[in-house]
Design a protein around this nucleic acid. Structure first.
Length: 224
DNA sequence: AACCAGGACGTGA
DNA sequence: TCACGTCATGGT
């Protein structure tokens, strides 16, 4: 077992399945990786992916609830509403001016897809979708085996001495994907692990890599 | 009161 | 390419 996969097993043992997505309604379903099931649910994941940029889960949940309570959780309903209303609903998530525009930009792109699955390159051309959001959309929205890297991931890798400071997003993404491809051959099984792994890193990150100095009580340092 | 959150973009060097 | 400022609300 390589070190990356070992980190996954250790995190899973400590925190259990996180059951990320959906944000809304029925809530999280640990060990259920079947979401989303239709176009509206895919769009809901995109909304969450954009709103969650540099913001906390709780703030995004407020924004998502605002949207749902006003029946504005679909791309069609958002297109039909006033932009200022949209900004008002998503305000708790921060950067509401930018994010409102990002959402509208994505809807144009989403309509042009006509139900087909976008490539990562196509997503990256949409204003407001960077590497992490693209991977989030593909991984949790389209159930594609794309590993998502975030700030916690980099801090963890740094603290475990698996990368250096100047490691870039693609370097870290490749580190995880190469390691997990060797361990897990079945792509759909791997995709489920990608989904769970990132959620586990966030959970571990909240506890150990949120405030400096990072990782002082990180149990992974002793186990690896 | 400073710092950070499930980041991305625009700018200048 | 890369370092840096900006975007903004909300919790600790």
């Amino acid at each position: 077992m390589n070190i990356i996969y070992k980190i996954y097993t250790l995190l899973l043992k400590k925190y259990g399945a996180q059951g990320w997505w959906p944000f809304l309604g029925i809530g999280y379903h640990p060990n259920d990786y079947s979401y989303p099931k239709n176009s509206n649910q895919i769009f809901e994941v995109v909304l969450g992916s954009i709103l969650t940029q540099n913001t906390t889960f709780v703030s995004v949940t407020k924004a998502m609830n605002n949207l749902q309570e006003n029946n504005c959780i679909t791309s069609e309903s958002i297109k039909a509403m006033d932009v200022d209303k949209l900004k008002e609903f998503i305000k708790p998530a921060g950067y509401f001016n930018q994010k409102a525009n990002y959402i509208l930009e994505f809807i144009q792109f989403y309509d042009s897809l006509d139900g087909t699955i976008p490539t990562r390159e196509e997503l990256l051309k949409v204003k407001g979708i960077g590497e992490e959001t693209a991977d989030s959309i593909l991984l949790y929205g389209y159930n594609q085996a794309q590993f998502k890297v975030d700030a916690y991931t980099k801090r963890l890798l740094l603290e475990l001495d698996l990368i250096d400071e100047k490691a870039k997003y693609k370097d870290m993404k490749k580190l995880f994907e190469d390691a997990l491809e060797k361990e897990i051959q079945d792509e759909d099984k791997r995709r489920k692990i990608y989904q769970e792994f990132h959620a586990l890193i966030v959970e571990h990150g909240k506890h150990n890599y949120s405030k400096k100095p990072y990782g002082i009580d990180c149990f992974l340092k002793d186990e690896i």
